[in-house]
Nucleic acid binder design. Sequence first.
DNA 1: CTATAATTTCAGTAATTACTGAAAATTGGA
DNA 2: TCCAATTTTCAGTAATTACTGAAATTATAG
Lengths: 183, 183
Amino acid sequence: MNLSPINERFVLHFGEMGSRWGVNRTVGQMYALLFLSPKALNSDEIAEQLGFSRSNVSMGMKELLSWKLCKLVHKPGDRRDYFETPKDVWEIFRSLVEEKRKREIEPTLTLLRDALMDEATSDEDKHAQERMREMHELIELATGWFDEVQHLSPETLENLMRLGSKVQKVLSFAGHLRPGNRS
Amino acid sequence: MNLSPINERFVLHFGEMGSRWGVNRTVGQMYALLFLSPKALNSDEIAEQLGFSRSNVSMGMKELLSWKLCKLVHKPGDRRDYFETPKDVWEIFRSLVEEKRKREIEPTLTLLRDALMDEATSDEDKHAQERMREMHELIELATGWFDEVQHLSPETLENLMRLGSKVQKVLSFAGHLRPGNRS
DNA sequence: CTATAATTTCAGTAATTACTGAAAATTGGA
DNA sequence: TCCAATTTTCAGTAATTACTGAAATTATAG
């Protein structure tokens, strides 16, 4: 790995973190390398910089593409595939949440809905359904909320976040003026 | 596994999901079993219901306790440890985010801060630092926001979420009345 | 203190996941 | 079309992670 110390530390760290986020070490490293890189890199460059096999890069990049964490670009007169990460960190964050939802949240919601449709006879099943109902409600609320706010512009979102819990005060103030809007 | 079909499906599903959230299959199953259970269970009951070894349960429960996803309770006149999950799903969600932050976000922030302190000489390093600065800013903003809103009561939080993106309209309305509060 | 019930540790092994290199497939130009 | 550059697949193997059972430890009641 012939990276500068700053870059190398970052790449290694993301390798470790990758495993906590459901991708393996090498995929995490590939992502980090591309995130820092000022230009798109091709598979050979990635393989060489990180010191693993060409085929591993191929599989890893396929996974990063599927997570929409990287995109494929081409250079004129060059047949090779080049990879880069989206520039905007908000966009990255949004795709990540979006994909996590598709892969983890939606299947869970489906399971919960199915289970809630079943006829519960025993007390055990009735209690289980009640717990599932609570979980289902929370997930629906949280994902529904995310759906809505993710369409706000990055600036609006940023402003909202900077408001933090003060949002509550502003809202209750607005609520006093126009009861229909009370939070 | 002598669970009712409804419970069994849920338990198996959480086993699979566990691996995507950084815990292994058996730990995910233990959590799911306890989440659904109407009463606290001891290690032998867990081992028997799920069909794995007593020692595995011991290790798994240690992990769930460390994530604050389960708590230890005792029954009068019974020396054994019993386990249960917190009742309130909001509380569960909050501990999960809190622990994720401690283990994954904080170390990353530390790394980023350190890297940003370093003197960047090459263009490559300068660009890398700029990227890290963007990432650092996003993480600070998002975690700072979470810090604030997690202290709101579950009801307020729920109301805020139900507002969704409409929050923007209410805020800009309030802003017109009192420019100092403009979002 | 001793006996026993309960829990934890840990070395060994099983199971899973990650990685490689060689071969196959695909792509684009001549 | 054929050829060469590039990417993908996949079987085999390496590395890692998960799980067990036996032994050690801890805790409690008598």
